[in-house]
Design a protein around this nucleic acid. Sequence first.
DNA 1: TGGCACTATGACTGAATAGTCAGGTTTGAC
DNA 2: GTCAAACCTGACTATTCAGTCATAGTGCCA
Lengths: 217, 217
Amino acid sequence: MSQATKVDASVGARNRAIILTAAEKAFAAQGFKGTSVQQVADQAGLPKTNVLYYFKTKQELYLAVLKETMTLWNSSFDRATVNDDPAEMLADYIAEKMELSRTNPLASKIFAMEIINGAPNLNNYFDEEHSEWMEGRVSIINSWISSGKMQPIDPHYLLFNIWASTQHYADFSIQITRLRGAKMKKADFAEATKHLVTLTLNGCGLDVPEKYRIETR
Amino acid sequence: MSQATKVDASVGARNRAIILTAAEKAFAAQGFKGTSVQQVADQAGLPKTNVLYYFKTKQELYLAVLKETMTLWNSSFDRATVNDDPAEMLADYIAEKMELSRTNPLASKIFAMEIINGAPNLNNYFDEEHSEWMEGRVSIINSWISSGKMQPIDPHYLLFNIWASTQHYADFSIQITRLRGAKMKKADFAEATKHLVTLTLNGCGLDVPEKYRIETR
DNA sequence: TGGCACTATGACTGAATAGTCAGGTTTGAC
DNA sequence: GTCAAACCTGACTATTCAGTCATAGTGCCA
């Protein structure tokens, strides 16, 4: 790669990143239709045409944002095996998902709206990969159950429950803030995580690992 | 009320209802910005101007839909008292919320998008009423705890968890359908409800009432 | 110096769409 | 029959907005 290309690319890469950040914010706050390219441009501090220079269409920009979002979804639970301890794996998974809700609420919101609106931009590839992931996780949880490591429960419902309850803290943050009277801080998330882990693990008849135990005053 | 008014009103009422149903569908699928008055009109089988005759602006139509949605939110849990059995009350509340997700998924989706987008159309009145409701429920759960009827847990997190996990079946129905390979039917909802009740009540150290127990094969 | 690739942008266009308006019809009461 | 109120609608307007285009600047290298 020539020096020229390198430098030019770095300008491009920086602008792309700026635009993606601005777009994420706008799309999360107003959805795809509700966001204008002009708004993204303003947020990014660039002329609209410059945004369209990097991303030919609004759709392409949105897809780029969505794709970046997806890369966040990976977790240690992807690599769980039959030999792992269910309590620890599930607790860590919940904690990871909560940390994502805390640090990347916009990504969660965009994903949520995409699904609510019928997932028109998630292709078959995503569907298949997601289904495979699900199948794998279901079978591992089932083997934990059949080896007596945890109470019988349909793993599908368990996983849905974990997603729902963790993503809720990102997607419904406004409601939560208004009901609590204050925004959730890092410490509040830590507390909420313990509660979620406790609820879920007790729910499956598992012991809560030390570090997730709620201190009773 | 004169006969004329009655008849006229009934035409009006019928059309209003048709329009609201069409609008609910459209708003749930595409959000406020993504829905055009023309689309609602087509869905309702009426000319656009006729829709705007009944609802002066798109915003007014949306607010009417949102308001109808809110009337669904009431539940038996609103009237829980310290003397009630927490296991039964919570189980019934979860079951009611699940039934709402099954029968009124569109309402749930519209509400979810409204919150995700920062609740720009929910007024102070809603906020205050909602906060009061929350305070009341929290204090009842806390008295259940202090009278030893259930394990100590922060009622806020418990309620958030119930909302999240039940509404998930409405809001994320597309994802659930794709992952399961088939749409959730009434029987599947019954099964999911039992799982949710079991997870949640076990989570709080409560016995699951007979009717919600999962049959182990 | 000239050439190339990339970056940048103001001016414009065409389509979509919320909302208006003016005039029309229906319905029931008297 | 006639009046009023409610209902209905085609034609139009004003605005917003995605995307195009023609032109220009920048930085490197041969």
